[in-house]
Nucleic acid binder design. Structure first.
Length: 446
RNA sequence: CGGAGCGUGGCGCAGCCUGGUAGCGCACCUGUUUUGGGUACAGGGGGUCGCAGGUUCGAAUCCUGCCGCUCCGACCA
């Protein structure tokens, strides 16, 4: 993409309403624009990031055995009356009536809907287990939306739902999602720690929240420092191997990790030696829980067992705040110049900066680099604006592109361009070919 | 939902107290200049001052009502 033809409304000054860094940077970098309280349009740059996050979530969900579907945003009130949640949910649920005065609602979540679908489509124990998920916009009429997309009223969420015959099966499904979440967040360059959660209004007893550690997090967290250092790395997961999954889950839940909701100082101090006690702040980016037959029973979603009995499903639900992640990643990865995208979610993989726009040699070299990078499958943003070098650096650093290829007449005389890493600032003078090879290798392209 | 505050060009703000028909910086356009980390100068375009009533010869400014938004606390992916 040539920046001169892109839509990137960046701002030099901080918007007054944005209090936390991710909100400020998302507005300044032209990623989002507020439509009304807690509701945002995603501009091209923000939308690219959102799609990349979404793609990783899709990929990891499916690797773990979950099957994608897409349910509507608008649901019928009747379904929610059956589960008893129509009244329980309160003012947070956006209620709508259609022209026939039928009561509808904009879905804040989809347990009822998916249970109805699974109940209708699954009749036999032979059809179990199944995990269905979708990534869809949700609406919760929060009392106090804030922090930009971190706590909007409209937000994009991945929600998965598992269906099993019995509790052992449900645990396997739960563990699949647990490990899948570890992989998902790790791939995005995040350090997410599973913490014991409160079962909350949806209920259930097997439940964890995944929090990434960041100073601006909304929750206080208390954990064994060692847990924050765990990593799956390149470990190969056999998703069908229940005991192997359980072993991973056990390792991540072996020690103390709780949010302020469930924190017990005395237990913390008794279980964890002082030097390993880590008190920090965290942003919740995922939440999983097992809730048994809470929905299948009232909605009459049942299967036949091998013995010919009819029983309700054992279920759990598993959420990831997809739009929130865009903000959360920025909270975890930025500096005073702007965003620092992890390579996996960066809106562009590399920026070409022409230091001397209009100089025939520089223009020619940049055009050539730009074409070749595209040919090698890299997503490149070419800053070809008629701006001074400083303005280009400031823009590219603000929007957080992980790598810069800096091209100017001086370097070209020596036959080199500069390859600059956004995070470390490390600069290498390389021939254009070497620089391209380096980038292709970094991103795993030919 | 309790508390505080704010609505004036795309963004950040001044003007309001003491009514006289809107201004500054950034951004944008034109020209000159400059050219390796947000150049300088000159000129220029863009605003029903959140909305509706009211007071007044006259309202961004005073009064009333409404709407929108933000921040702090109790709640949530």
């Amino acid at each position: 993409m040539r920046l001169s033809r892109y839509f990137l409304p960046v701002q030099k000054e901080n918007p007054a309403e944005a209090e936390i860094v991710s909100h400020r940077l998302m507005l300044r970098a032209g990623m989002i624009r507020q439509a009304s309280a807690g509701i945002y349009s995603w501009l091209p740059l923000g939308y690219k990031v959102l799609r990349k996050i979404e793609a990783i979530v899709h990929d990891e969900q499916q690797k773990a055995g979950a099957i994608p579907v897409l349910m509507p945003t608008i649901q019928s009130a009747d379904l929610w009356r059956q589960s008893g949640r129509y009244d329980d949910y309160g003012a947070e649920m956006l209620r709508i009536t259609d022209r026939g005065d039928r009561e509808m609602l904009y879905g804040p979540t989809n347990e009822e809907q998916i249970t109805e679908i699974a109940g209708a489509g699954i009749r036999s124990y032979r059809d179990l287990p199944r995990i269905l998920y979708h990534i869809q916009w949700k609406f919760r009429d929060e009392v106090r939306p804030r922090f930009g997309v971190m706590r909007g009223r409209e937000f994009l969420m991945k929600d998965a739902y598992s269906f099993d015959l019995d509790k052992d099966g449900a645990r396997h499904s739960y563990n699949r999602m647990f490990v899948s979440y570890l992989r998902t967040f790790e791939r995005m360059g995040l350090k997410a720690v599973p913490m014991r959660a409160d079962s909350g209004p949806i209920g259930g007893d097997m439940t964890h929240e995944f929090l990434i550690l960041a100073e601006t997090g909304e929750s206080a967290v208390f954990l064994d420092r060692d847990l924050a250092d765990l990593s799956l790395g390149e470990r190969v997961i056999d998703w069908e191997d229940g005991p192997a999954l359980q072993e991973v889950v056990d390792r991540y839940t072996a020690s103390y990790a709780r949010t302020d909701e469930t924190h017990e100082e005395a237990v913390f101090e008794a279980e964890i030696p002082e030097e390993r006690r880590l008190t920090a702040r965290g942003i919740e980016v995922g939440h999983i829980f097992y809730f048994g037959t809470k929905y299948s029973r009232p909605l009459n979603a049942t299967v036949n067992t091998p013995d010919g009995e009819v029983v309700p499903f054992e279920s759990g639900s598993y959420g990831i705040g997809v739009s929130r992640l865009a903000g959360a990643i920025i909270e975890a990865s930025h500096d005073d110049r702007g965003i620092i995208w992890p390579e996996a979610v960066a809106p562009f993989e590399v920026a070409v900066i022409n230091l001397r726009q209009g100089d025939a040699e520089a223009d020619g070299a940049c055009d050539d680099l730009y074409a070749k990078l595209i040919a090698r499958g890299l997503d490149v943003l070419y800053d070809d604006r008629d701006e001074r070098a400083g303005a280009k650096f400031a823009t590219i650093d603000l929007i957080g592109i992980p790598w810069k290829l800096v091209v100017g007449p001086r370097g070209l005389k020596e036959g080199v361009v500069e390859l600059v890493n956004r995070r470390t600032g490390e600069t290498e003078n390389l021939s254009p070919d070497d620089a391209m090879n380096r980038l292709a290798a970094t991103y795993g392209r030919a």
